[in-house]
Design a protein around this nucleic acid. Sequence first.
DNA 1: GGAACCAGCCTAATATCTCTAGGCGGACAG
DNA 2: CTGTCCGCCTAGAGATATTAGGCTGGTTCC
Lengths: 199, 199
Amino acid sequence: MHPGASSSRPRAGLTAERLTLAAAELADEVGFEKLTIAALARHFGVRDASLYSHLRNARDLRVRVAALALTELADRAAAALAGRAGRDALAAFADAYRDYAKQHPGRYAAAQLELDPETDTVAADAARRHAELTRSILRGYRLAEPAQTDAVRMLHSTFHGYVSLERAGGFRHHPRPVDDSWARTVDAVDTALRHWPAQ
Amino acid sequence: MHPGASSSRPRAGLTAERLTLAAAELADEVGFEKLTIAALARHFGVRDASLYSHLRNARDLRVRVAALALTELADRAAAALAGRAGRDALAAFADAYRDYAKQHPGRYAAAQLELDPETDTVAADAARRHAELTRSILRGYRLAEPAQTDAVRMLHSTFHGYVSLERAGGFRHHPRPVDDSWARTVDAVDTALRHWPAQ
DNA sequence: GGAACCAGCCTAATATCTCTAGGCGGACAG
DNA sequence: CTGTCCGCCTAGAGATATTAGGCTGGTTCC
């Protein structure tokens, strides 16, 4: 090919970081399933093979996007929790979570990737940090272990489940506004935390 | 075998139903992401192209598995609810849901596929049926609309979220037994339903 | 019984994606 | 200036998804 026709190639200036960020944007645009090495290479105008100097493989790319997403999510959660407590903190955390998922569907999907704590350390750390923040919400509800852990799991489950079902279209069958149900769901979680069942 | 070698080919006897069932089993074994036309064709000892007489395309196969899963899930939910009410019904429903996901991870993953109500009618119907059953649990809690719809959404979110995070390994960081947290989570949902917030 | 049909599986071929091996040229160090 | 090395490239193999078209055995119908 005369590609070279014009000789000088201006180096695309790829780095793992730039690739990861672009991948996150791409995932948000076209969906995480369609985040592919080939698509990313096209985006930068280079050959697929060129990405392998910066990324181990396709899964590596996805894990990096997951780590980015989990970090951003934890940052937002931290910001939402700053200066708030109790029910206020809960609501702010919940909204931050859902808003992030809405704004960054591709990143959010990446965050759901199954991670191997052994190898995907960065992502796993970010996930742990997010869990710590979730736990900090419960300080206002005075739950002792192991109820606290149970509550963290329930909280995360409800929020993740809601967002996930909403995105999958699971709530489209009914005209009730999804935002309203969300507000009631957060209220219900607050209720459950305040009356946490003994035993 | 040298294929043609022996002339007579004993027809594999493929039908959409047999393919769907085999695909569901395959998905449970190797994971829904690895459910592929090629793998399924291998399973039956036929060529990939042969499947296209029975299935429109790869997505069609996946949607069929989703429909199967949603139907089975609704069947189990119905069985769990039979003869029970209130908190009893809630717990039975919850366990049926989680048990199904544990026994059939591939099918369960399929059930989370984004469905288009226009084209994926069978699957969408099964999903609706499942939603109706969820709603029937709430009879014991005497919630009027729109609280009822909000509660259905919260219920489903919590259960799905829990199962989904459990599978993704999200609860592995802490030694607290996952079954125990599950029981407390179901209790908490019961509590929330009994004290459903007004407004 | 035989011709026509058709359902069911096959071969062939294309496109896309992942990933490995090895090459080449420009930038930078000395 | 001269090497070295980094960063991207060419080549190519192996998988999957999908389409087009062909062969054949079983069924149908006179």
